[in-house]
Design a protein around this nucleic acid. Sequence first.
DNA 1: GACTGACCAAATGACTAAATTGGTCAATTC
DNA 2: GAATTGACCAATTTAGTCATTTGGTCAGTC
Lengths: 195, 195
Amino acid sequence: MVDRKQQVLEAAERSFRIFGYKATTMEKVAKDANVGKGTIYTFFADKEELFHAIMEQFVLEMKKAADNAIDHDRPFFENLHRVLLAMLEFRQSHELTIQLHYEVKVLGTPMAMEALDRVEKAICSYAARQLEAALEKGQIRPCDPAAAAFVLLKLYVTIVFDWEQKNGKRLTADQIWDLIQLFVIDGLAADGAKR
Amino acid sequence: MVDRKQQVLEAAERSFRIFGYKATTMEKVAKDANVGKGTIYTFFADKEELFHAIMEQFVLEMKKAADNAIDHDRPFFENLHRVLLAMLEFRQSHELTIQLHYEVKVLGTPMAMEALDRVEKAICSYAARQLEAALEKGQIRPCDPAAAAFVLLKLYVTIVFDWEQKNGKRLTADQIWDLIQLFVIDGLAADGAKR
DNA sequence: GACTGACCAAATGACTAAATTGGTCAATTC
DNA sequence: GAATTGACCAATTTAGTCATTTGGTCAGTC
């Protein structure tokens, strides 16, 4: 006896990954999952809820990738760096999010936008939790962790992706680390010139 | 005797500002400027060149706004801050760029995209020049001014605009300055915890 | 009672005729 | 005769129509 819900989930993931949100039809998913179209609606209220289920799974795996990037023997800022790079790398290297980004760009599908926003928010929350812990240990200056996490994420996106988009060539891991040190860790001001 | 070229420039600025690039027609510009359509083509090779002329003027005025924001009696980082805020404020408060941003968002007009890119590049160059000067005076740590300027601009956009877009409410000038101090000037690391 | 696929209203896309546009250039003006 | 113009043209865009597709339902099947 096959697990029909699992079949549907797997077929839906394949379809959203390959065709995106809009071009995924419930009929195609049903066909791929070897179930009748109506069956899907016994597990999920509508297409949106099915999509949410897939995206939730995606976020869960992304967080797992972040967990694995942490090495408790290493200094805080190095772990923060590894965690953020791991999640961005995860997001950037999975067909599902690539497809959704493309769909947002060329079709502007609102559902795809919301989904990507949730992924970003998940990264942000993860980083914010890291910062809160560091704040309690006195490893970082006093600040609002949520705001700092948001700025941090955008900073990484700028350095890792936006720079490449504008200048053609991607920065090396060392160059990225240098810029992060400069802006995030040490600050731009020369030691003798702190306000 | 009227200056026909000036008439055309003024009418074109009005039209691009109110209707955007695509919805601006050469006939409407000619009508507004009280000249024949053919006359425009004696001054500008095509619609694109006319648009460039308008945008060049815009960038020039934006740089002027930046110049005015500088107070040589004040410390470097404060001037850098004022310069960047002045240019972003200029860009964000002028109908011409607002209209173009909107057009890029809903129509994706390539010409409007390029124009906004040139505006951004102008801001970046201006900031890079400031950083170069500061570098020579030893006011900032050694770094690539072009890269730092790029990151700096994106950071400001994040703090001033992206934050508002995500959280509904805009940060106050003080909150913005705090975040800039934290990330740009001093660094996030607690004094006792520098790597 | 779990499951299905024919069925329906609503949304989408393909098609086309009509209108508009950027750009040219022969005629006109000063 | 230099400067200016608007009728004109090819090419693109638009608006409107209609056939197809889609998300979701539900009467019927196993």
